[in-house]
Design a protein around this nucleic acid. Sequence first.
DNA 1: CAATAGATCATCT
DNA 2: GATGATCTATTGC
Length: 197
Amino acid sequence: MPWEELVSGSDVLPRRFYERPAEEVAQALIGKLLVRGKTAGRIVEVEAYQGLKDRAAHAWHGLTPRTKVLFGPPGHAYVYFIYGMYYCLNVVAEPEGSPGCVLIRALEPLAGLELMRRRRPGVSTVTGLASGPGKLTLAMGIGRQENGADLTLGSFTIRRSSPEPALQILTTPRIGIRHETGRLLRFAVAGSRFASR
DNA sequence: CAATAGATCATCT
DNA sequence: GATGATCTATTGC
């Protein structure tokens, strides 16, 4: 899909969209558009992290230099480096001072596919371009520089598409964590080939 | 197919 | 000094 058409038919989500419990924001983000520069994709998989009351969350230990952004105002990006190799993208949720967030885990690529392919050499299928938290940051060129970015302004945003597709949402436990594994805080588009496994 | 190993480093104890 | 919100290649059935 042409980037211009995609963006002209969509609206940036306002800050108040993010100012509620992380679990609600996570579900509401399914189907929304993540746009960065000339690349864009539909969010098909997310996980909610509930801050101080969630042992699996980075913010569980409290305010540190790394978690500072999580304690700030909602609607900003929290990007962290993991396993010595990858970056993961989160969106800060809940009112300022309450460090809830939503991990973006997978996208259906919609625009800028050529650029994404160049950033993911060796990946032959479109489904494999952004079907995981580390993969999507590579495909969209997201790194340290984006930590703290305001997602309600500028060229890095999350948008509501019109019309919004009617999507069946699946709820499951979160992936790759050691604590709080029983909580049903992962949400994905049912049957999506673009979600992670 | 499923299971496993290796890459590689910021962050916090 | 250990750990981790991962990915890929490789091995074994």
